[in-house]
């Protein structure tokens, strides 16, 4: 039985539209945490609901995605429901990183070329939590760039410093680069998303305790 078959409440037209608007708002305002509607669905590991909803919103038969090989059920779901094709991390339009602690794919993701920089990949990175307020054992990201009036702060847990270093390295040659969505899923907040387009300048510092 397909996981999505039970999720009667997901409507590809209207939920797709609402989620797209959330993704657009988030992309236009990096650091903003967007809520994707709490759609009734079960998703196979290692996907969280937010990542799955992003895939359902944006991927179609003419896109490709990369997800770690071991995630067979998740691959099946994405192929079936979006008709997108699996690809290597070097070729994929969407690179899904299920665990932010294993982010090697960032170094392999496409960054586009100078004539067509939009061919840079879109990363979807799953983290433990995203919050506008400090959390224990999290990173405080200080963001600047287009979409941000002066500075924005957001707190991420479950993502190592090295991930942001890798991302920074990948985006050093603007307009080449990758654009990222960070997703998390919790009982209290539901599926959430935050965007870091390639234009966002990110500084990070660890928050070890409650401030």
């Amino acid at each position: 039985m397909s996981a999505l078959a039970m999720a009667k409440s997901y409507d590809q037209i209207f939920d797709g539209q609402k989620h797209y608007r959330t993704l657009l708002q988030c992309t236009a305002r990096p650091g903003m945490i967007g809520q994707l509607d709490d759609v009734l669905m079960e998703v196979p590991a290692p996907l969280n609901r937010a990542t799955t909803l992003i895939a359902l919103t944006l991927m179609s038969a003419d896109s490709s995605f990369h997800l770690e090989q071991s995630a067979e059920q998740a691959m099946d779901l994405l192929c079936r429901e979006t008709l997108a094709k699996p690809a290597t991390a070097e070729q994929a339009d969407f690179v899904l990183i299920a665990d932010a602690r294993r982010f090697e794919e960032i170094d392999r993701a496409r960054t586009g070329n100078l004539a067509y920089p939009e061919q840079g990949a879109t990363l979807v990175v799953q983290v433990a939590a995203l919050s506008p307020a400090p959390m224990p054992d999290s990173l405080r990201l200080t963001l600047a760039g287009p979409g941000i009036e002066s500075e924005a702060a957001v707190f991420v847990s479950g993502a190592p410093v090295e991930l942001f270093e890798a991302l920074q390295k990948r985006n050093v040659e603007f307009p080449l680069g990758v654009d990222s969505f960070f997703t998390c899923d919790s009982l209290s907040a539901g599926p959430c998303v935050m965007a870091l387009p390639r234009t966002t300048r990110v500084k990070w510092e660890p928050v070890s305790e409650w401030s």
Binding site: L24, L58, S60, S63, T122, P175
Partner: peptide, 25 residues
């Protein structure tokens, strides 16, 4: 709904997001 089929909408949406990520391009 909204005249355009979902397949085409998705393409426009993907491209719009990229346009926002690379301002002015």
């Amino acid at each position: 709904y909204a005249y355009i089929d979902e397949f085409t909408k998705k393409e426009i949406r993907r491209k719009t997001l990229k346009a926002v990520c690379i301002p002015g391009y």
